[in-house]
Amino acid sequence: MTSPLLEILDLSVHFHTPEGIVCAVDRVNIALNSGETIGLVGESGCGKSVTSLAVLGLISSPPGRIAGGSILFDGRNLLALEGDRLRRIRGREISMIFQEPMTSLNPVLPIGRQVAEPLMVHKGFTKKEALELAAEWLDQVKIPAVRRRLNDYPHQLSGGMRQRVMIAMAMVCGPKLLIADEPTTALDVTIQAQILSLMVGLKEKSGMALLLITHDLGVVAQMVSRVMVMYAGQIVEAGGVSDLFDRPFHPYTQGLLRSMPRLGDPGKKRKRLNEIAGSVPLLTERFIGCRFADRCPYTFDLCRLQAPELTDVREGQVARCWLIFQPEKRSLNA
């Protein structure tokens, strides 16, 4: 077996804030093979964006600091690369799409130029060639009447259109890995579906790997092969998508799945993840036990005394939960 395209090993990211040190990401491990799609799921504030920004070295420092770990991409440790070598990976080998299409494009530059820029800087195209190719890509992401829109500015486009521009911009250099950080969260439901199917299509055509970050398990189910569930800066469960959906182990994953709409009642509006009682703990705390203990329906004494580690549940599925060792506790409290 070949080594993975992207391997995040024991990554920890801290933020030094006036309130104390925020451990936004705590010893996270993610491996992603070429051409594979995996999902990173978790509710707001659990560290998904920070993890993905760390891959491209975009954590602003201060206040951020990579407190440990390494990020291997194609055999190189991204965290050890300095200046220009890292810059040449950004936008060329690894691209990123952000959560907020409304603010992620530069308001004073025409969209054609913004899409063309990576081609000029990474591939040495002239402005004219790059604009030509940018137009092709904008066409591929189904921006209507592309030729007339190259000189449009972001404020003239809708949110969905802007996200299409972002996708085109991320794709122009043919990256090996695309990181999509909640690409559809800010969009209408109908637009969400369009953008997702567009991304699936592009991914299949190009054969790139995709790290899809979302808090919507429904999105993940259709698109990815493996899912990692994050909670309060840690991976709490990971596994193949069908295993995780059919036999979730971690109470948090179970809660997430329960808060999803079931087949058969499509009329019901989709609920958000925070239907699980309680809220995410402050990450400035020092945790002694399990981070989910306060919200977990099965919490027992051990959960508050010692933090569990990721442990095999079955072939290809891991979870961070004491119930693995004491399964009887689940039935006791349920």
Binding site: R87, I89, G91, S104, L105, N106, P118, V121, H122, M169
Partner: peptide, 20 residues
């Protein structure tokens, strides 16, 4: 956010600062 986008695209520092 758009400055972060500019960095993420791999633009040179002077392009990010002086243009974007």
């Amino acid at each position: 956010d758009y400055v972060r986008t500019a960095w993420a695209k791999g633009l040179r520092e002077r392009t990010v600062i002086y243009v974007h």
